[in-house]
């Protein structure tokens, strides 16, 4: 595990080679916004809010800070006209789904994002995958997962598993940046859980 030096927003930053740009920035108190990142989980690279500009060998490119590995002499810019434009639009795209999310509203204020720019399609979920990955990686329960692909993608609880596992856990609830997860869970519970019968109660 060797140490290298890179430059983030003009500041020299020491980092070990297995770190990502996001981790290196955070280690010196430079904030890069994220929506799908969680320290206990594998980096995901889904929300792209952490997009930053990097310069290597004279070439500038846009990368996801949560996944991009640090390199010696790497130059990182966490804010630029380009980066801000991208973050603003990504927020606008997400606000069409979850206009009341506090996390999104806060970022929207910072980047001047207009929550009414795109027609509302209130699915509430922004598909950050925190619940799905927490359930799989930390709890190893795989109760909630993604179904479908592309624009039809959504999260879904597997009723049989949820009925068995969720009552004792619900640790994913506070991870959700919107209210979609709880809604999805309670909907599953209402529609698909076996109704308690005297026998099953006594078995427990």
């Amino acid at each position: 595990m060797s140490e290298i030096i890179l430059r983030i927003d003009g500041k020299e930053v020491k980092a070990s080679t297995e770190m990502t740009v996001l981790a290196a920035a955070r280690s010196v108190g430079i904030n890069i916004p994220t929506l799908c990142h969680h320290e206990k989980l594998e980096p995901y690279g889904g929300c792209r809010i952490c997009t930053v500009e990097v310069e290597t060998g004279g070439r500038t490119s846009l990368v996801a800070a949560c996944l991009y590995p640090v390199q010696p002499d790497l130059v990182v810019r966490t804010r630029s006209e380009n980066v801000d434009k991208i973050r603003k639009m990504l927020l606008e795209l997400l606000l069409a789904h979850a206009p009341d999310s506090l996390e999104l509203e806060q970022l929207a204020r910072e980047y001047g994002a207009d929550k009414n720019r795109f027609e509302k399609e209130s699915s509430f979920c922004i598909l950050c995958g925190l619940c799905v990955r927490y359930c799989a990686e930390i709890k190893k329960a795989n109760v909630v997962g993604f179904v479908e692909s592309g624009t039809r993608r959504e999260i879904s609880f597997i009723p049989e598993r949820a009925a068995r596992e969720c009552w004792k856990c619900k640790e994913c609830f506070p991870l959700c940046p919107t209210v979609a997860l709880q809604a999805a869970y309670f909907l599953t519970e209402a529609l698909a859980f076996p109704s308690p019968s005297p026998e099953s109660e006594s078995e427990r």
Partner: peptide, 19 residues
């Protein structure tokens, strides 16, 4: 075609194509 065939994991692709 792409709206259905994208995996839907990342926001710019999924939401950008949708819009």
């Amino acid at each position: 075609f792409l709206a259905n065939e994208s995996c839907g994991k990342c926001v710019p692709c999924r939401e950008g194509i949708r819009q």
